[in-house]
Design a protein around this nucleic acid. Structure first.
Length: 560
RNA sequence: UGCCCCGUCGUCUAAUGGUAAGACGGCAGACUCUGGAUCUGCUUAUUGAGGUUCGAAUCCUUACGGGGCAGCCA
């Protein structure tokens, strides 16, 4: 039965898969046990789509007091690598899940072989000498039934002999296969005598060169589920048509029979989710690495500054169904904002500095002003921020000719400097040659210091700033969506890559409290967004990634 | 045009024969020392046609639309 939820972000609504579990419990189909599994193939890095599956499978195990295994579906040695195994392990853990069993389909190769022998003896599998091309021809078409292989009726003894010799390495790669004997006239191609084993001399990342025959997905998956006592084998829609075969193998073997259930995979707007194409992005240098913060990989999101909580919350919010869909990426972004709004310390940082001089502030004077670390969390406390005569503000917070509804600084106008004083712009210094504004002359009102008795005077807006002499330099990497269209696809998908997906801004100025920030620390840069210390960051050479912007009402107004 | 799956606000998800609900987005407004956060209001949906029923998003039939399936990939 469902347990009480323990955390705020993990309050999943029910879904049709949980309802199936409920039904199993009610009918006692699996003796009250709930066992799921997450079965990645180690041929690439995990992405946000996998996160949906991970949260689903591990979430069910958690909420039903069951178990969830992590099992690598490593039946194709030509594509799989230890590097991927390692990254998957790390990503699942980072997402906050602990597997009950850690298994590999390759652990079961011997058992699978025994099972195959059983089917052969039952007359339900045979060794076929047809080539790959011939098998395809014999398979028929959607409207025409297939043709039975001429090798279909070999004797059990001959099949046993041949299959043993396949394993022993007596035949060339691709020379023979072991096939299930089902029904070449089935409207479901998967039932037209599907291949169970192929001869393949490739070094497996775990079993090395011990095997030269490898089980296919269909043959390995269900039986692996059965061996582990899985009750609910949850997979994506494309395996729906494989379910009759999944069931057939288990029934013929007469072993524990999990329930396969399919759900719609995650598609995110403006995001590429194809593993193959993500690999291409990396290999062709279109992004810097698998964990490039623009990548939808778990490691990419991690580096960018996403929290495991936000991703879990996302998985809960989007739900599970059988309907193919494209999820709006803004939902994911909102999940991050929601999480970081509650937790991230606030800090002041100026991305594109504009120097201002407070003319009536004493030369050489500095004072420490108190700033709130997180207005959403009083326990986060306060810190001191240095203030002095020369400051930097955001270039964007000044307009010489302010448009309507522009509340910030302009010649003659007043704004509050966050946690400091109200200032007035009294002069604009421009570069003689370019006409560019290079400095602002301002005055401050000493009566308006934040927190003081007379500080309640209202001005239209409050802007962030840093003290020029105290500020730290930093590099900030601004990310935008990797693709320019909602649904990047088709053959020319690479043309759809957003040329502005990364903007590196050097010579940013950040408040001195950031001196000791560590890699992966996350902050809200007030009025700008949430930022995360990048892997490349070093003391004295800070590098931040923008994980997500704040909601920007002004940007909307100005767009109109 | 063989078989299988799926059609609910712009986008997702819910409603399990009994008032079509929530989230994100959008649009207004309130509040605010973050144009942040928060709060309020508004917007908009059951693919069509038949049928069963007192009553249908839900069950049946059918049409239409979308997706999938002919790897010795998973």
């Amino acid at each position: 039965m469902a347990e009480e939820k323990t955390t705020v972000e993990n309050t999943p609504r029910t879904n049709f898969i949980r309802e199936i579990v409920d039904e199993h419990l009610q009918t006692n189909r699996y003796g009250g046990k709930v066992v799921t599994r997450f079965p990645p193939e180690p041929n690439g890095y995990l992405h946000i789509g996998h996160a949906k599956s991970i949260c689903l499978n591990f979430g069910i195990a958690r909420d039903y007091n069951g178990k969830c295994n992590l099992r690598f579906d490593d039946t194709n040695p030509t594509k799989e690598e230890q590097e991927y195994v390692d990254s998957i392990l790390e990503d699942v853990r980072w997402l906050g899940f602990q597997w009950d069993g850690l298994y590999y389909a390759s652990d079961y190769f011997e058992q699978l072989y025994e099972f195959a022998l059983r089917l052969i003896k039952k007359g339900k599998a045979f060794v076929c000498d047809l080539t790959a091309d011939q098998i395809r021809e014999y398979r028929g078409t959607p409207t025409e039934p297939g043709t039975e292989s001429p090798y279909r009726n070999r004797s059990v003894d001959e099949n046993l002999d041949l299959f043993t010799r396949m394993r022993a390495g007596e035949f060339l790669d691709g020379a023979r296969t072991l096939r299930a004997k089902i029904d070449m006239t089935s409207p479901n191609f998967n039932m037209r005598d599907p291949v169970m084993y192929r001869i393949l001399r490739a070094t497996h990342h775990r079993t090395g060169d011990v095997w030269c025959i490898y089980p296919t997905y269909d043959w390995a998956h269900g039986q692996s589920d059965s061996i582990e006592g899985i009750t609910n084998s949850v997979c994506t829609l494309e395996f729906e048509i494989h379910r009759p075969l999944y069931d057939w193998f288990l029934d013929e073997l007469g072993i524990h029979h999990p329930q396969q259930t399919e759900f719609a995979r995650l598609n995110l707007s403006y995001t590429m989710m194809s593993k193959r194409r993500l690999l291409q992005l990396v290999e062709e240098g279109l992004v810097n690495s698998w964990n490039d913060p623009r990548m939808p990989s778990i490691s990419g999101f991690r580096r960018r500054g996403y929290t495991p909580e936000s991703i879990r919350s996302f998985a809960d919010r989007i739900g599970v169904s059988k309907r193919e869909y494209i999820q709006d990426v803004t939902v994911l972004e909102d999940c991050l904002r929601e999480d970081l709004n509650a937790r991230a310390p606030r800090v002041m940082a100026v991305l594109r500095p504009l120097k201002i001089v407070i003319e009536n502030y004493p030369d050489g004077q500095a004072e420490e002003l108190e700033a709130v670390n997180n207005p959403e969390d009083t326990a986060a406390g306060v810190r001191k921020v240095p203030f002095s005569k020369v400051l930097y503000i955001e270039q964007d917070d000044f307009r010489e000719a302010p448009p309507k509804k522009y509340f910030r600084l302009s010649p003659g106008s007043e704004v509050r400097l966050r946690y400091a004083y109200i200032i007035k712009c009294v002069g604009v210094v421009k570069d003689e040659k370019t006409g560019e504004v290079i400095e602002l002359r301002c005055t401050y009102d000493p009566e308006t210091r934040s927190g003081s008795a007379q500080s309640s005077r209202k001005v239209k807006s409050t802007i962030h700033w840093v003290s020029a002499t105290h500020a730290l330099n930093a590099e900030v990497r601004l990310y935008d969506r990797l693709f320019t269209v909602e649904e990047p696809g088709g053959e020319d998908w690479k043309q759809l890559i957003n040329p502005h997906s990364l903007e590196v801004v050097k010579s940013c100025k950040v408040e001195p409290s950031l001196a000791n920030a560590n890699v992966q620390d996350r902050f809200q840069f007030e009025r700008l967004g949430y930022f995360c210390v990048d892997d490349d960051s070093k003391p004295g050479a800070l590098v931040f990634n923008r994980a997500v912007t704040l909601r920007d009402t002004w940007a909307k107004i100005e767009k109109k």
